[in-house]
Every structure is written in structure tokens, then in C-alpha cells.
């Protein structure tokens, strides 16, 4: 008999703790499938953030460490000093990366750190119960912006991929969405390329996943994906912002 599908060995055979309809699980699986496809499960190191995915190390079948809120890029830079040839990634939410950890991600990119950051943008602080993030959309209601985010008070939602794409050391930057099978396939290709950039030692690589947080958005899973499609994608356009010749 021919095996036509097998769950990736990159994920441990346990249920995740994420809410129904949460796309953290999809992102985990894509990343781990790609690491497995590259044959690197044995020498990949991951850094989990503070956020719902702090427990990513309970699901991803690789060596991992947690990091203090926002500091994952500094931690990964430390891991890289000791292990010059391992695959290394950080996995961070939008509160973690775009707010409290804004300095660390910018400087890691600017040093051209040879690791990959997977950025889960769900436009909300998930773990703490739905507060406004730097990425929360104008008009989007959260527990700290009950009338919706206002530009005059909170500024515009931060487009992190565009920001990082202005930095020389960030050689691969792509935004993808986890809202449809077609986009998930594209997301997988972006993950593969980002890891390839790292393997080739070309510089810092970054993939932003537009993700759903049905729980804190207050939608059923299907409606959450619809909200993502109709509201997030227009403001956060999908596509590649930077890609080195070597992996095109």
C-alpha cells in the first residue's frame, strides 16, 4: 500500500490547547511540515513567545525555549551565536512582536540575523483576553477600545512587514493569510522559502501570517475567516515584499 498522507513528525501527537477555529494550529503545522521536509527536525531550535502560543513547545517536536514577552528575537540571536548551522526560528504574536518587542525585531532584522521569524498577526492580544494591539484595525472593537480603534487616539495599525522590508538585513519578507486552502498553500511556500534563505545564510527572513482569533473577535470560526478576508487583507495586502535572487 502506498502512503498518501501522514501527519508530520514535526508535531507531537497531542491535541493543541488553541480555541476552535484558531489558526495558530495551522501555522504550527505548516512550519513543522516544512522543517520536516527539509530533513531538519533534529537540528532545529524554536523560540516561543508570550501569548497564546507560549506553549508551542508542547506541540512542536523540536528543541525549544520560551522567551520573555517580546524578546524572542534577542533569544534567537543568542541561540545563533552558539549554533551557527542549526535552523532557528522565533514564533511571535502581534502584541509580542509589534508592541513590546518592537525594538528586538527591528534590531534583529537590522543585524541581518540568520534566523526566521514567523509572525502571527491576529489584530488582537489573544491570550490576555482581547485587548487592542498595534495591529488592531481602525474601528475594530476590543476590550480596550470598546468603541473601536480611533486613529486620533491610537494611530494607524502598524504594517510590520512593510516596516521591516525597509531594512537591508531583512532579505526575505512576505505576508500570507491563513483564510483559505489556496492561501494556506501559498503560506507554506513562503515558509519553505524563508527557511531556504536561512539555510543559505542570506540574512533575516520573515513571514507574517494574517490569522484568526474567533474567541476574542467574537465570531464563529467560519465568520472569523470571512472577517479576516474582508477586513484584514485590504489593509494588510498579501504578497512578497522582499526576496533574494537565490531563492526566487
Amino acid at each position: 500500500m502506498r502512503t498518501i498522507f501522514e501527519p508530520t513528525k514535526g508535531m507531537l501527537p497531542v491535541d493543541t490547547s488553541y480555541c476552535p477555529g484558531c489558526t495558530h494550529g495551522i501555522a504550527h503545522r505548516l512550519i513543522m511540515e516544512c522543517v520536516e521536509e527539509k530533513g531538519r527536525l533534529g537540528d532545529t531550535l524554536g523560540v516561543s513567545p508570550i501569548g497564546c502560543s507560549v506553549v508551542a513547545h508542547e506541540f512542536m517536536n523540536i528543541d525549544m525555549c520560551e522567551s520573555a514577552h517580546g524578546r524572542a528575537p534577542a533569544v534567537a540571536a543568542g541561540l545563533r551565536r552558539v549554533h551557527p548551522n542549526h535552523l532557528i526560528f522565533t514564533y511571535q504574536g502581534d502584541g509580542d512582536l509589534a508592541s513590546i518587542g518592537a525594538a528586538e525585531i527591528i534590531h534583529a532584522a537590522n543585524r541581518g540575523e540568520k534566523f526566521t521569524t514567523f509572525f502571527i498577526n491576529n489584530a488582537i492580544y489573544g491570550m490576555t483576553g482581547g485587548q487592542m494591539a498595534p495591529t488592531t484595525l481602525i474601528g475594530q472593537k476590543s476590550t480596550t477600545s470598546v468603541e473601536g480603534r480611533k486613529k486620533e487616539v491610537n494611530g494607524m495599525p502598524l504594517r510590520v512587514s512593510e516596516l521591516l522590508a525597509t531594512i537591508d538585513g531583512a532579505v526575505f519578507v512576505e505576508r500570507v493569510a491563513l483564510n483559505s486552502p489556496a492561501n494556506i498553500r501559498k503560506a507554506r511556500r513562503a515558509v519553505m522559502k524563508a527557511l531556504e534563505v536561512q539555510e543559505k545564510g542570506l540574512g533575516f527572513s520573515f513571514v507574517e501570517f494574517l490569522s484568526a482569533c474567533p474567541t476574542n473577535w467574537g465570531y464563529q470560526p467560519i465568520d472569523a475567516l470571512k472577517w479576516l478576508t474582508e477586513n484584514m487583507i485590504p489593509y494588510y495586502p498579501l504578497g512578497n515584499l522582499r526576496c533574494p535572487e537565490e531563492v526566487k
Partner: peptide, 13 residues
């Protein structure tokens, strides 16, 4: 903030 967290990464490795 970054230096102590880089050090954490180095020590963890």
C-alpha cells in the same frame, strides 16, 4: 533588555 535575553538564549544553548 536585549543583552540579558541574548544571554538567556546563549545559556539555553
Amino acid at each position: 533588555l536585549a543583552s540579558i535575553n541574548m544571554a538567556y538564549g546563549i545559556a539555553a544553548a
